[in-house]
Design a protein around this nucleic acid. Structure first.
Lengths: 225, 225
DNA sequence: ATATAAAAACTGACCGTCTAGTTTTGTACA
DNA sequence: TGTACAAAACTAGACGGTCAGTTTTTATAT
């Protein structure tokens, strides 16, 4: 470390070529044990208290790690939370190829919904969402790691259904995806009603009827031009 | 305005020694001008920066009001944000009675979606959601003032549709509501795609086909009554 | 001796409280 | 109608405490 700036008499303009960079550290602690400890501590505390109520000191203490070690690898508390949640959800399996759209969707959504319903994940997800809406960089990472892959999986499932002739070829897949995921996230985030297996099934059934049924809308009375 | 805030009437009846009293200050500044100024300043800053990045000092400064005045009437920053958002959204009209379920839903959702799409309301909503998931008291107020009334309105709309025979009588209205609101909130909160008029229309059309179509689910495997 | 990490001190921002002094408002009396 | 008085609402600003994120110092392992 160069201490030459300590005196401060001169401006030390010479350190312009300080290519040292390292503004965005990325990676994980050298020791896999430390990495596990940090991930677990962060996930536990996040679920216990919510992002806002968890301090970095608390995470460092529970992980038996120095706060500086955390900051060495994660630039902010939010990015740590993102990794911790990702770590927690890495168990969720790939969608199965059951032969029907309904079966494929159930195989994707049920395990995830059960996991999400069992513990207060909605709290963490909404906190990350809030952060994503303010920090474009964070939003990009959130979408790249969480939303994007899951949406691509689901899109493939729908593509198969189109190929099988289960749903019309002209279907707007983006709307269809939101029609399925929207209600599930709605319950997860708003908590006005429980996120049960039955609800997931009902949503899939109703949404699929709406998606698969071709033709114009019934009862389009009073529809403006 | 002489006695609207006096507790006189209720007090006379031998009210329980709920002497605890006054932990939650409720009301608004005496001066309507100050109230407006605080609401506007809070709403502006909230939309500009998001809840977490707005300090009470900043709100007080922009409203040209002392911070103590704000704390006199609002216990926390979050409750102030709740009121500010409510104030902003008070313009959204009642649902019209157009004679069709589709028309009624459009009259409810389109104005609101346009308002929400015009400015970053999703940021504020998600912050309030996060707070609601951690503070039960806050959650109660959030649901009482935002979710509840809107859901009751929508429920009435669906009840009319059942009465008209537009949708089957046994329809689970709670699921139907989530099928409509879920996708709209999904786009508002996740921002993966724009919340356009066309999207709202598509969601309503698809969801209504799914809701209105009677009969069993295609390929219904083991669905209980 | 060199790299790594723990420990701990430090900076700066901000929440929510509090004090002390000023203005507004309501009331009562002349 | 005007004046005196009290209660409540307001202002300005300081303060204690918490916490994010940084930097310095000390210990450990290779």
């Amino acid at each position: 470390m160069s201490q030459d700036l300590a005196a401060g008499d001169a401006l030390a303009a010479g350190d312009a070529p300080a290519a040292g960079d390292a503004p965005a550290r990325r990676g994980r602690p050298r020791s896999e044990k430390a990495h596990q400890a940090i991930m677990s501590a962060a996930a536990e505390l996040l679920l216990e208290r919510g992002l806002a109520a968890v301090s970095m000191d608390a995470i460092a203490e529970r992980a038996k790690v120095s706060k500086a070690t955390i900051y060495r690898w994660w630039p902010t508390k939010e990015s740590l939370a993102l990794d911790a949640l990702y770590h927690e959800w890495s168990d969720v399996p790939e969608p199965a190829d059951t032969g029907t759209l309904r079966g494929d969707l159930l195989s994707m959504l049920l395990p995830w919904a059960r996991l999400a319903a069992r513990r207060p994940y909605g709290r963490v997800v909404s906190a990350l969402l809030t952060q994503a809406q303010t920090e474009p960089e964070f939003a990009a990472e959130y979408h790249t790691r969480f939303i994007g892959p899951r949406r691509e999986q689901a899109r493939a499932v729908f593509d198969r259904a189109v190929a099988r002739g289960e749903i019309p070829p002209g279907t707007d897949i983006d709307v269809a995806l939101d029609l399925i995921y929207g209600p599930v996230y709605h319950r997860l985030l708003h908590g006005h009603a429980p996120l049960t297996d039955q609800f997931v099934r009902d949503v899939i059934d109703m949404a699929l009827r709406g998606i698969a049924t071709p033709g114009p809308v019934r009862a389009a009375a009073g529809r403006p031009a």
